[in-house]
Amino acid sequence: MIKVLIAKPGLDGHDRGAKVIARALRDAGMEVIYTGIRQTPEQIVQTAIDEDVDILGVSILSGAHMKLVPRILELLKEKGSRIPVFVGGIIPEDDATELKRLGVIEVYGPGTSTSEIIEKIKGYFENANI
């Protein structure tokens, strides 16, 4: 059973994407925890660790991703966690490249299909098990 945390850092309330993804992952047989909106990086990281999730998905549309995502990665590292992180939202190309360089496994822009994300997650764990 793959356990996923879908988190919404920052203050924007645009949770349509986060909720659609959460639901699609559920329908793909995963256990999905959703944090709700307005979460600080500290809350997200502690939740990911306490819930012992396999993967963390971060949805952000306010434009604050270059502040918030690196902070999340830093906190995970500080706490000795290796939970993989993917990001969804309006992320310009060069920012996406930078986030991947910092350790984000994938950045999904607007228009990404949920099946693409599901396949990617499933594939990630199949490969990790080999």
Binding site: G10, L11, D12, R38, T40, P41, A64, H65, L68
Partner: peptide, 11 residues
Amino acid sequence: DPHSLGEVGKV
């Protein structure tokens, strides 16, 4: 405020 991190003057 800690909640404001990265959001000040953004939108």
